[in-house]
Amino acid sequence: MSISLFLHALEQGFVFGIMVLGVFITYKILDFPDLTVEGSFPLGAAVAAKVIASGGDPLWGTFLSMIAASLAGLFTGLLHTKLKLTNLLSGILTMTLLYSVNLRIMGKPNIPLLGKITLLGKIKDYFPNLSMDYLIPFFFLFIVVILKFIIDYFLSTEIGLTIIATGDNEQMIKSLGVNTDFTKIIGLCLSNALVGLSGALFAQYSGFADVNMGLGTVVSGLACVIIGISIIKIPTIFWRTIAVLLGSLVYRLIMIIALRYGYSLGFKPGDLKLISVLLVIIALSVPFIKRKLNFAERYNLGRKDLQNNDGKEV
């Protein structure tokens, strides 16, 4: 495999890794399968592209995209907590609504950013001697690492712990004085802000924003989270955020290899979504199939559940 292919996987793994961190917060921490991301990813791209295409500061555009996407999360949160819609439906409604909003923001289905001053272009000015091939992955790595530590810290604060507890045992945390409507909304805003940022950076990296670029965000996000967590199994927040980022890299590597070498196997670019769904299904069903195949457990030989009644490790 060539080095450029690997660098591409790094770039994409990190830039989508920001989105994966967001999906991780809702899906794994809050236990809230949030479909809003399907709309907030292109929303981030749309806002950033609009600002940049009209000659605005790319930093400002990127910042605005985070704000806009977190508002999308807020909207889903309000639908779920105040109007008592189910979490899936709330996400679907917001996602669908955002399609129209994104079209409104962009004014057309696609905004090219070629020749405009993007964040990456600005960074390049600071490091004129470094090749873009190496600068981009380093820049994205830098951002993703900072975000990882911010999330780690936030989730260990008093508020952060209540967000984790909301996903773990909602009835308990209510009886401990937490308004779980509030914690859910905070989690959704934070998650979608990350997804929006990811969209904004991806638009600047790939040189365009498209109204359809969010298609499949949920599935790829889930795939990364699940792959990552099945590679690194240490259940602390510090290691879990590393795990999902690793998952993102592995996923992008698989996708890029599939794109590059898939032709000889008869794959087309349109098959990528199919491949990512198959990845998710395989990753999710492996533990179940393993258990089915485990002879001892299947016939209750050993009865592990009965042997561990003295508070020993289960």
């Binding site: 008093e158 401990l176 004085g177 937490v178």
Partner: peptide, 13 residues
């Protein structure tokens, strides 16, 4: 989580 039941902030838990 159970010790502080109001005005939770951004201090470490």
């Amino acid at each position: 989580l159970s010790l502080k039941r109001e005005k939770r902030g951004l201090r470490l838990g």
